[in-house]
Nucleic acid binder design. Sequence first.
DNA 1: GATAATATATGAGTCTACTCATTTATGTTG
DNA 2: CAACATAAATGAGTAGACTCATATATTATC
Lengths: 202, 202
Amino acid sequence: MAQAALSRREQNKAEKRGRIIAAAHALFAHKGFEATTTLEIAEAAGVAAGTLFLYAKTKDDLLILVFREEMTELVERAYGFAKHEQALIDQLIAFFGTFVAYHERDLPLARALMRQLGYVASGEQRAEVNELMTGLLRRLALLIEAAKGRGEARADTPLMGGAQAVFGIYYLNLGKLLSGFVNREQFDRDLKGQLALLLSGL
Amino acid sequence: MAQAALSRREQNKAEKRGRIIAAAHALFAHKGFEATTTLEIAEAAGVAAGTLFLYAKTKDDLLILVFREEMTELVERAYGFAKHEQALIDQLIAFFGTFVAYHERDLPLARALMRQLGYVASGEQRAEVNELMTGLLRRLALLIEAAKGRGEARADTPLMGGAQAVFGIYYLNLGKLLSGFVNREQFDRDLKGQLALLLSGL
DNA sequence: GATAATATATGAGTCTACTCATTTATGTTG
DNA sequence: CAACATAAATGAGTAGACTCATATATTATC
């Protein structure tokens, strides 16, 4: 799997990185993001307080470090569910429904994540977030492409542009849900209505 | 303008609030949001360190306190510019162009604001943010309504739903611009393309 | 394998957002 | 207006994210 030759240094780093991610993940899940201190994470991972910041420039970065993998899998899973639906609109609802179900298990964490993804401060994790986002948009683009084949979308619709529009609509509604401006029922209604609008045009 | 009878207490509070907002505004503009400390603001406003937190629960709240007024005016101005365009798509571009021009004057501040508006933690300012957002959406809805009259939009398009979809698309693209994922030219192209997509349907 | 060069880890120390027990100012009541 | 009640302000104190000079581990060079 990995390139066979890992120097001692690289081994140690990878191991430590793994312990930090595992410790942070467990603590975030158990106590929530805000309530977890960086010192606690360092202790649980068996490293010094300062070492943590060699692996993540800020506590927020830690959040990305921890959830990038999980979110990548989630994108895959959401796409898997979505594919089985017949119409594009239902596919999109199923896709985002998977995300919302995930977020609903831990709302404060979801809020922290959303806050973080909205703008990535340190260049360190920017590439990673971009990759994650691109992966997500590509799945949406795949769904739109398939819809073209079924005559549900016009042949000249730009795939990535369409995907971004879809995601933009979802993201704004997610923000309203996580902020408590709307409840889940209202969210579902709004999202479906606005996506339908995008599909058919204003 | 104000209800004539302001008790001594209410006078003092209003005055102090004004000084805090003015001091914070000046310091944010001059040194940026992150680099400004709450103590500096307190000193500049002539209040004690702790007093600040009676007027804004957190430093982030302070950001909203300071910019709510300015953003409200900006919405008005953006709408004024947009109205003069002929086609809906150009009106929307003009509307958001006003916002982007404003944000480009101070990118770090814009990032802080965006971060903050994405999710409003303390209930204190939530209502204010909601009001601001609603005002903005209503202007967009007005533009869509007028477009209906010109036959540019279907009569059965829900105004607020359409406005939210438009704003969602803008907001995601703004995030990419402020994060440095795209430059201004790319932003303009993407936004226009995606809004056009919404107008005509996928 | 000794020495030098470099990468990584450490944790005491700093900085700053935020709290809270206490004090001060304003309003109310008999 | 005296005594009380309540609202607002104070600032020393706390907590936690993050830094940085120093120490340690690893690798490269001879």
